[in-house]
Design a protein around this nucleic acid. Structure first.
Length: 938
DNA sequence: CTAAGCGAGTCGGGATTCAGTAT
DNA sequence: CATACTGAATCCCGACTCGCTTA
């Protein structure tokens, strides 16, 4: 760990970057846009750091529930004890830090303690002030601030939420060039599209493009476009401002105009749709509907779908819609009792349970073969809830319960379903689809939008992730009486299931949910919302990334400030600064407080003593469970002051269980961040650093080579971001066996290669002398034992193959009413096996193989060549598989990497977008695909 | 030898539902 | 604190790949 460099204060590092004096490859072209802080020193820093992380992070396999304790030992009557013993039973009563004064109160292990705080206060005077010899501070900062880019100032004064695409450094791209570039891209993109999609868009694209091309010289784009029957092809957000050749209409006016149109059309559409949707639930349900619109048709014709990103109608954001129509939620089917012969047993005797109890027992029965069933907490929680529902039935001991009959029954059912065959299952699916059809879409401001999770969550046993104290509890069935519907005033309220009523029906257009209810396990509120592809979600996604981009304009100052504050005399400030450093550098989450009935996971602000280990001079080891109980393990060098601070924050009497940042919480932190930029919060740093890193990584990819190479490079960049964000996945249970299989396969190929070489030698023994290197034995397979085994399995395979074929042939013959082959025939066919064995035998003895008839050295060499390629392919594949076994790329792609970066990459590098964004992502990121081009910058 | 067909196994993607953050 | 929204891993199923056979 070359500590000397890492010790450099951030400011210095940044300075180097900003001056453009650093040799940094990743240095920003215009030299002003700041990178993420992690860029510690030189060009390689980010990647090397990430690589380090990758290696260090122990390939963080998710910790499996340690308790492998089987339930078989110990009776249910014990469960109380188990429970008590389990978690922090030893914990001292919690003292609220604010109130308590008694200094001899025992330290609470999890929360910050009054005790701890007082001590900190004491030390504050001596320690903090003393270690602060090198006071920089206020003056410097003020000076720096004066240097702040003008844009920043202007923007902040004028309009808080900068119009998308406004405001930033890219505005100096000449419009004409930009337009041309964009058009080029559009064409290229079209070319890259798969035929099917292309056809769909052909008309649109060509006319629009044509119109545009004509207009390029002189005229008014939008006019021509209108003539072509299209909305003006506006470029919106992101790169170019719409400062337009268009005309001299002030921007504001234009925006208004744009905003108005959709509203009008909305109204019209609304009217139409209202009728539509209103009648559906009542009359037209069954037949009328089916013929009236195959979904595909309907989609293509109407719509002229809403491209929200093409008009800047910035509502203030609190109102989410004006009209809203939907059909409510879909409840899971009612429980059907099991057949009479399927019963759980208690003490070996079949018991008849009340319906509700049977259902719950079934929940457990269905999970017998999962990890959960052997988790004591799970069983305990389940059993407690189970007993509560049993009423008078006398079941007191979990050990005496036998759910196996239920399990078997479910397995049977599964098998039945499988046996239905493809056709049968298709039919079932069609039926289900039909039942769901009306819930799939809603109408928001008259536009058809996809609903996300319209299915009410079915009852079951709560799983929870990590060591969740509530795992195994019964998740109750949700009744319509618990569900509140949110819908437009003008819309028909969907009817609750017969005999039921809704909890409430409201018309709140400041929220986006269509329905809500409260879940019984944690008391969390669940919502039915629109799908990720909807305009509402799209817009907020867009805003999220714009916010992250805006952070660019403030990040320098923020970093300066917190670097300075690392030495603050105020404990609270110093902690805050340190936390910000960690959030910025390590992409930690904010770390809200959690209660005792949740899994014990932490983020930055909730880090505790035991989560950080200090290794002088400047390395910090983080080891804790983060969101979803995913382990965060990282050894990383930090700047000196941070190291010093963490040492202070861990100072006695603090000990295991105490908060590191006892003077800080997420609310304070975010409040502080708001001072820098509206809407800035801790999580924005994650988005920012992720996208920034991606941009940096993409910039380093050479624009050459085959598409698949570029794609691989993209994935590598993606992977770095995933590692930055600590996105892990559990190694699949099959991983190891799959790796072994693959290795075996590779070995087999190598053996084949070896044999080919031996054949050459049989043809021309002299070659060995001419080219000894070529015929050198392959070190990978010099193991005779293995060779023999392998030969044996090859022989076996061959036998099986021949036998199978024989049987198949016979079947065919039988079908045709012909004579069946005799066993003698089979024996004859199996004669080759003998040959094989003989061949192996001599091969093993002499090292020689008779090549097949007609074989020539040239042919054999060609085969060897091919074999080598296959081996190489398999090997790289295996490598990637191994490398990625714990890294999940998806999450960062979906949530953190600005999709416009990907679009930019694809357009610039000529990689088809569908290679990187699957169908749903293309839908979700439509706004990005249509608005970014090859020179877009985050 | 190539193209097409075939079946098993793998993989990717969407659905699910829980876990966070933010105000 | 409740509310509302984003973010997250995993489950599960369908589709596609791959190696092999057959025409």
């Amino acid at each position: 760990m070359s500590s000397s460099e890492d010790d450099r204060p951030l400011a210095a590092v940044r300075g180097a970057r900003t001056n453009g004096t650093s040799s940094t490859v990743s240095a920003d072209t215009n030299g002003t846009t700041p990178g993420p802080i992690p860029t510690n020193k030189n060009s390689k820093s980010v990647s090397s750091r990430l690589d380090k992380m990758a290696n260090k992070s122990t390939n963080g396999v998710r910790p499996i529930n340690a308790a492998g304790i089987s339930l078989v030992n110990g009776s249910v009557e014990d469960s109380g004890d188990l429970r008590r013993g389990k978690r922090k039973g030893h914990q001292a009563p919690i003292k609220e830090s604010s109130s308590s004064e008694d200094s001899d109160a025992p330290l609470n292990k999890r929360r910050r303690t009054s005790n701890g705080i007082r001590k900190e206060n004491g030390f504050k005077q001596e320690d903090i002030s003393s270690d602060d010899d090198d006071v920089p501070l206020a003056k410097k900062a003020a000076a720096k601030r004066r240097n702040m880019p003008l844009t920043t100032l202007v923007k902040r004064e004028k309009k808080p939420p900068a119009p998308p695409g406004g405001g930033s450094s890219d505005s100096d791209i000449p419009l004409a060039t930009a337009k041309l570039a964009k058009e080029k891209q559009r064409i290229e993109q079209k070319a890259a599209k798969p035929a099917k999609e292309m056809r769909a868009e052909e008309n649109k694209a060509t006319t629009a493009a044509g119109a545009k091309r004509k207009s390029a010289g002189n005229a008014n784009t939008s006019e021509l476009a209108k003539k072509a029957g299209k909305a003006p092809p506006k470029k919106t957000n992101g790169v170019k401002k719409e400062e337009s050749s268009d005309d001299d209409v002030p921007l504001a006016k234009k925006r208004k105009g744009a905003a108005q149109k959709p509203i009008e059309s909305t109204k019209k559409a609304t009217g139409k749709k209202t009728k539509d949707i209103d009648t559906k639930p009542t009359a037209a349900k069954g037949k009328g509907k089916a013929k009236e619109e195959t979904p595909a048709e309907a989609d293509e014709e109407e719509e002229e779908e809403y491209k929200w990103w093409e008009n800047q109608a910035e509502t203030d954001g609190t109102q989410k819609w004006t009209t809203l129509m939907h059909n409510g939620v879909l409840f899971p089917p009612a429980y059907e009792s099991l057949p009479k012969h399927v019963k759980m047993k208690y003490g070996g005797v079949e018991v008849t349970l009340p319906l509700e109890a049977e259902e719950v027992a079934g929940f457990f029965g269905a999970m017998l073969d999962t990890q959960h069933a052997s988790n004591p907490t799970f069983a305990e929680n389940f059993f407690k809830d189970f007993q509560a529902i049993l009423k008078h039935v006398n079941i007191l001991s979990f050990q005496k319960c036998d759910f196996k009959p239920m399990y078997d029954y479910f397995e049977e059912k599964k098998a039945e379903k499988k046996a239905l065959g493809l056709a049968g299952r298709k039919a079932l699916k069609a039926e289900k689809d039909k039942a769901e059809e009306k819930y799939l879409y809603c109408y928001l401001d008259g536009r058809k939008e996809k609903v996300g999770n319209f299915r009410v969550e079915p009852p079951g046993l709560f799983r929870g992730r990590g060591e969740h104290p509530k795992t195994g509890m019964v998740k109750a069935r949700v009744q319509p009486e618990q569900v509140t519907i949110n819908i437009g005033k003008e819309a028909t309220v969907p009817a609750p299931p017969p005999g039921h009523s809704w909890a409430d029906v409201i018309h709140d257009n400041t929220v986006t949910w269509l329905a809500t209810w409260k879940e019984n396990i944690n008391g969390n509120i669940k919502y039915v919302m629109l799908a990720a592809t909807s305009s509402l979600k799209g817009m907020s996604d867009f805003k999220k990334f714009e916010k992250a981009r805006e952070l660019k304009n403030h990040i320098d100052r923020i970093r300066e400030d917190y670097t300075r504050d690392l030495k603050s005399e105020l404990m609270a400030d110093r902690q805050r600064a340190t936390a910000m450093y960690l959030i910025d550098k390590l992409a930690l989450r904010a770390g809200n407080e959690k209660s005792d009935d949740e899994a014990d996971t932490v983020g930055c602000c909730s880090l505790r003593y035991e989560h950080i280990t200090l290794e002088p001079p400047n390395v910090v080891v983080f080891d804790f469970l983060g969101k979803d109980s995913i382990r965060f393990y990282q050894k990383t060098p930090v700047i000196h002051q941070v190291f010093k601070n963490l040492k202070i924050f861990k100072k006695a009497p603090k000990t295991k269980g105490d908060m590191i940042f006892d003077r800080l919480d997420t609310t304070q932190l975010n409040k502080h961040l708001q001072n820098y930029m509206q809407g800035l919060s801790a999580k924005v740093f994650r988005t920012y650093n992720a996208s920034w890193t991606m941009q940096e990584q993409l910039d380093e990819i050479p624009n050459e080579g085959a598409v698949h190479e570029k794609y691989a490079a993209y994935n590598l960049a993606n992977k770095k971001v995933a590692i930055l964000c600590n996105h892990q996945r559990t190694v699949s249970t099959t991983h190891e066996t799959m790796m072994q299989k693959q290795e075996e396969k590779i070995k087999g190929l190598r053996y084949q290669k070896l044999r080919l070489k031996r054949m050459i030698l049989s043809l021309e023994p002299t070659r060995k002398k001419k080219n000894p290197a070529f015929f050198k034995p392959d070190p990978e397979i010099d193991d005779e034992e293995w060779i023999k085994e392998h030969q044996f399995s090859l022989v076996e395979q061959e036998k099986e193959r021949i036998t199978k074929k024989f049987e198949k042939d016979n079947e065919k013959l039988q079908e045709n009413g012909e004579k069946v082959l005799k066993d003698k025939e089979l024996k004859e066919r199996l004669q080759v096996i003998k040959d094989m064995e003989a061949e192996f035998k001599t091969e093993n003895k002499t090292g020689k193989i008779e090549p097949k008839r007609g074989a020539t050295v040239e042919k054999l060499e060609a085969q060897i060549q091919k074999m080598e390629e296959r081996i190489k392919k398999q090997e790289t594949e295996a490598q990637v598989r191994e490398d990625n076994k714990t890294v999940a790329l998806g999450t960062s792609k979906i949530n953190y990497i600005d999709p416009r970066l990907t679009v930019m990459f694809c357009k610039k590098y000529g990689v088809p977008i569908e290679k990187i964004f699957a169908k749903t992502l293309r839908d979700k990121f439509k706004w990005a695909i249509e608005s970014a081009d090859g020179d877009w910058k985050f």
